[in-house]
Amino acid sequence: MSVVLETRALVKQFGGITPTDRISFSLERGARHALIGPNGAGKTTFVNLLTGVLRPTSGTVMLGGADITTLSREARVRIGLVRTFQINQLFATMTPLEMIAAVTSERLGLGTRGFSRLDASAGLVTETADILARFRLDDIMDETIATLPYGKQRQIEIAAAFAAKPSVLLLDEPAAGVPEAERRELLDTVAALPADVSVLLIEHDMDIVFRFATRITVLVNGQVLADGAPDAIARDPAVRTAYLGEAAHG
């Protein structure tokens, strides 16, 4: 399998703190990879380095073999590195139809067109309709997003990321805060993502991690503590003490 996203000796320092300490990480094409670690392990900083919110102190980020370390956030999105957010980031006054159309039109490079109508592009219309159907949003597509139940909003969060046509999708705690009743539909959505999208799941919930991931990377104190198949990670004594042990204590 080929590597699609990779970091080499990635370091981020804030003053005396090193939240990312020489992380070399690789995500294989089509992977279902989970990134776990206790609070303060540096997961958020790592995701911010991958997506371009932060610039590393040293090291490189590669996507599909190209160095993207200095690319802007939106440029990374345009070449297929897309994320969802732990806390919903939605276009709350729009309808699901408008939000998905907004993301799709940007992906199709239509965003600079100020004089054409939204429904003038057949590609935009069909692609938007496809995504609404795939994420089962078509029955609510004309309602204002802010008025929808949280579980639906969470679906839209993932649908919008998917609309940017990611080759790599970073899912940041996709089920966070979703009530039990709506949880199943959401996890089905995650499981149903097409195989050609490589997924990196950043997650606290071990049920989801072990159900979903075929490979797990454990981050502790800004460093990769362990990396491997789920059963190997579950047996790893270092992981148990550093991570699972702490989780057991709350």
């Binding site: 939605l90 993301v103 992906r107």
Partner: peptide
């Protein structure tokens, strides 16, 4: 409107 509603998401959508 995307930028107005949520600049973070707009950027994360490639705007």
């Amino acid at each position: 409107r995307a930028i107005r509603d949520n600049p973070l998401r707009a950027t994360a959508s490639g705007v």
